[in-house]
Design a binder for these strands. Structure first.
Length: 188
DNA sequence: AGGAAGATCTACT
DNA sequence: GTAGATCTTCCTA
């Protein structure tokens, strides 16, 4: 049902990968079950010329290949990024999901029932999929990983571009992308 | 030891 | 929808 995207998918500008990831499935595998969400909101970050990029991370991650995860803590939340770049090193922050499968497990991990509040934010979705530090550096293009990204049935979507959320100093470019009309987007 | 960080929750207008 | 408190790890001194 889910087809894993190859590593090539992530060899591209963060900006383009961020757009291409919309509508794809983020799959969290457990021993016998899985939790799946459709990616509905992303943001692109560049390691150069981007004030919002946290340079102090660079020494640790600059050798990360395209298609690996980079997970870090901000304000008591684990945030999930996928390394993606062509020339200039960068990544894509996954900001929101639409729950597809394993919704009961998401509810359990989040400790709440409200479906619309399970995965509509970068820190919420990591809780809902039980993503923490120990999934840092995982290959999302390897089907044996605990976290993978797959294609879903093609759907026609409209992409909205916007300024990034929460960054202290943003660029004069719209690097946040989300699926128009989707109710799981974190901020409209 | 202290501060910063790309967020979330709650309690309001 | 905004404002303020608080969340936890990591980095710098």
């Amino acid at each position: 049902m889910y087809k894993v995207l190859s590593q090539k998918f992530y060899v591209d500008n963060p900006e383009d990968v961020a757009k291409k990831l919309l509508g794809k499935a983020l799959v969290r595998r457990f021993d016998s079950r899985k939790v799946v969400g459709k990616i509905v909101e992303t943001e692109a970050y560049y390691s150069e010329g981007d004030p919002a990029f946290r340079k102090e991370f660079l020494p640790k991650i600059s050798n990360f290949k395209q298609g690996t995860t980079f997970i870090y803590m901000v304000h008591a939340n684990w945030l999930l990024n996928i390394i993606a770049y062509n020339k200039i090193f960068g990544g894509v922050l996954i900001r929101a999901l639409e729950p597809i499968e394993g919704i009961d497990m998401m509810r359990k991990f989040r400790g709440i029932d409200d479906l619309s509040n399970l995965t509509n934010g970068p820190g919420k979705l990591t809780v809902a999929l039980n993503i923490t530090n120990d999934l840092n550096g995982v290959k999302v293009y390897d089907r044996s990983s605990k976290l993978i990204i797959c294609s879903l049935k093609e759907e026609k979507i409209e992409i909205v571009s916007a300024y990034r959320v929460g960054v202290k100093e943003d660029l004069d470019r719209k690097l946040r992308f989300y699926i128009k009309g989707n109710s799981f987007v974190s901020k409209h």
